[in-house]
Simulated scan of single mutants.
Amino acid sequence: MKSQKILALIPARQGSKSIIDKNIKSLAGKPLLAYSIEQALASKYINRVIVSTDSEYYQQIAEAFGAEVPFLRPESISGDLTPDLEVFQQALQWLQKNEDYTPDIIVHLRPTSPFREVKEIDEMIEELLAHPQWDSIRAVCPVPHTPYKMWFLREDKTLAPLLMLEGIADPYNQPRQALPEVYLQTANIDVVRYDTIVAQNSMTGKNIGGYVQKIFNDIDLQSDWEKAEHLILQQYSGNEQSRTFSVDIDGVVAQLSPNNDYNLSQPNWPVIEAVNRMYEQGHRIVLFTARGSKTGIDWSAVTKQQIEKWGVKHHELRLGKVTADFYVDDRNLSVYEFIELSKKTNSSF
């Protein structure tokens, strides 16, 4: 196993239409892309993690979380309709030409599937290595509705069955329990041999192993994003560790003030209630502000009076940003996520 060169390749272009900049959008305080990078780095078998992107900004984010970005993907293969095969072949060709690097196995991790488990990645790698006749292995999950009861609607408004079964004249009239189990590819994890991509010109080949997952979670639409936020917050709820929350004042605890005249600041009550809930649950609350950092005006007395008047519970108040597990501002944990997190935790997470 150790002699195998196993590459995780994470495609992350910048041109998402359904959710703008989806691949780097903050999900519970972390860019979506970071989840896949961290999972790949935690694998027992993956020994190289590369992100394929067409954006220098995405490149910086990926590298900050530990991935390599040795090249930028050409614009010609960064469009909405670009197939995975072209992206992967370009990456493998670049690595062979510029680094004389040829992996044995490539693990395809899409950043839009942040809920995969590291053990699933490792188990799929083990399965592929244990079955040399397989060209690849793909993650699938059971479908909630059998396609044997699905139909095409013709132009004349009559129905044509989507699928038929040998030996059964009308499977669409059979009990669901009598029909074969059918699986949906999750787009969560694919593990494929180098020769399958390069020699067969395919992302899977013809002999494809299956790895069954329980559920399907992929982020495509805004509704998927909201579901993902809910699942992430549920995961936080099971973590009993007390955390430090560094909470910005202006634009978070307080509404933004006209012309930065902080004498006019007004409280943001939903956020203050969330802060106080977190405080009562035993988490450390550090309020911070950069008031006066550019003008040199000392707003400390006004700030302290406002925090006391509004009843914002906290352990510390600082000028400037501080070290914390979470930053509640536009760059990390969003205000919405923070409020929802405070509602879903009882005493710790």
Rank of each mutant, 00 (worst) to 15 (best):
K206C: 09
A8N: 00
Y45P: 08
D220P: 08
R116I: 08
R243F: 11
A91P: 00
D80C: 06
S52I: 11
M203F: 02
Y327C: 07
K44G: 09
R331Y: 14
R48L: 02
L27A: 00
Q266S: 11
D54N: 05
K313A: 07
Q60H: 14
E273R: 01
L41M: 07
V49M: 09
L319P: 00
Y58S: 07
Q14R: 14
Q241S: 08
S342L: 02
N23I: 06
E166I: 15
N268R: 05
L221I: 14
I272V: 10
K157W: 14
Y279Q: 04
F88S: 00
N47K: 03
R176M: 13
E308K: 14
T102P: 04
V335L: 08
Q234M: 11
N346H: 14
S348Y: 14
P103F: 01
S265Q: 07
P144G: 08
N201M: 12
K294A: 08
H314C: 00
E38C: 06
L72A: 07
A12W: 06
K321L: 10
S16Y: 07
D248Q: 11
N259Q: 14
R138T: 15
R13Y: 12
R243I: 09
S342I: 06
D80R: 10
T244A: 06
I272A: 03
H131W: 04
V286H: 08
E75F: 10
L72N: 09
V335D: 07
N260R: 08
